[in-house]
Simulated assay, not measured.
Amino acid sequence: MEIRYAVPSDLNGLLNLLKDNHINSIPEEEKKNGFITTNITKEQLYSLMENEKGITVAVNDSNHVIGFALAGSWNFWQSWPLFTYMIEHLESFKLNDQILTVENSYQYGPVCIDKQYRNTGIFEKLFSFSLKSMADHYPYMITFINQVNPRSYAAHTKKAKMTESGTFDWNNNHYWLMAIQTK
């Protein structure tokens, strides 16, 4: 297994993993194991990969994508309504008494691991690589977690050591806003 920046040949694998783990694709009984809510196109993934170096992938020995973490500037994410909402309210959140802003933070996520590779340490490796990849540009990483996704919350608080900086509601969903220093 290797953790690295994504390359164009990874795009189809990324899209397949996104589709297979999207909230609209998985049965209700499997949602307790985690899910993704963000819709993103191949063109948007390519832009994130090329312009922001914002896609970290885990690949198996056959170079097949088995996990990923997305990260990008707020400028990249602003075309999605949820992220626009977050941008508008970001400065109401703090980490270590520091107000979080679009200038001092970036958005991390979604992150996803293929089912057969979960609980193997890949999440921690993806998270660490992604965190370090943006550390020279931003002092804070931010993500949000739907409160009906306790698996993600546990992974980000226990394994990634992120701090809950508050909660917010959007589109009839309740979210935790999580943050961590990049260095």
Rank of each mutant, 00 (worst) to 15 (best):
D61G: 13
E88L: 06
W77G: 05
L126P: 09
G109P: 04
I55R: 04
E124Q: 14
W77D: 04
V102N: 04
V65R: 02
S79V: 01
A71F: 03
N119D: 13
I87F: 04
E91Q: 09
V65I: 12
S47Q: 07
L90I: 08
E103K: 15
L48G: 06
K115Y: 10
L70W: 04
Y108W: 08
E52S: 06
S62W: 00
S73C: 04
C112H: 10
Y108R: 05
R118V: 12
S47E: 11
L126M: 11
L48R: 03
W74K: 06
D97C: 05
H64N: 13
K94Q: 12
F127C: 11
A71P: 09
F68L: 08
F76V: 01
D61A: 10
S73D: 06
E103A: 11
A58L: 03
S73L: 06
F93R: 08
I87Y: 00
F83M: 09
V111K: 02
F129D: 14
K132E: 12
S73Q: 10
D97G: 05
I113N: 07
S128Q: 15
L131W: 00
Q98M: 09
A58W: 01
F76G: 01
K132I: 05
S128Y: 06
F129L: 10
E91S: 10
G54F: 00
L70F: 13
S130D: 02
F83G: 02
Y117S: 13
H137M: 12
S133E: 06
G67I: 10
Q98Y: 04
N119C: 11
N63Y: 03
N96K: 03
L126F: 14
A135M: 02
E103T: 07
G121R: 08
Y108A: 12
W77T: 05
I87W: 06
G67V: 09
K125A: 15
K94W: 01
C112R: 05
E124K: 15
A69D: 11
N75L: 00
N51H: 07
Y108N: 13
K115L: 15
D114S: 13
R118H: 06
Y108Q: 12
S105G: 11
I113A: 08
H89E: 07
L131V: 07
C112W: 02
I113D: 02
T101A: 06
N63M: 07
D61W: 01
F76W: 09
F129M: 05
F123D: 11
Y108V: 04
T101N: 10
E52V: 01
Q98D: 08
A58P: 10
S62V: 02
E91C: 01
W74C: 05
K125W: 00
S128H: 12
L100G: 04
I87V: 11
P81W: 06
T101C: 05
E52R: 01
G109V: 02
F123M: 12
D136L: 02
N60E: 07
H64S: 14
D61L: 09
K115T: 15
W74R: 09
N96C: 00
S130L: 11
I55H: 10
S79D: 12
L90G: 01
L82A: 07
V65M: 05
S62C: 06
T120W: 00
S62L: 10
S92D: 05
H64W: 02
D114R: 12
G109T: 02
A58E: 02
M134H: 13
S47D: 07
N119T: 11
Q78S: 12
F129H: 14
Q78C: 07
A71T: 03
M134Y: 14
G109S: 05
S73K: 00
N63E: 12
Y108I: 01
S73Y: 06
F129N: 11
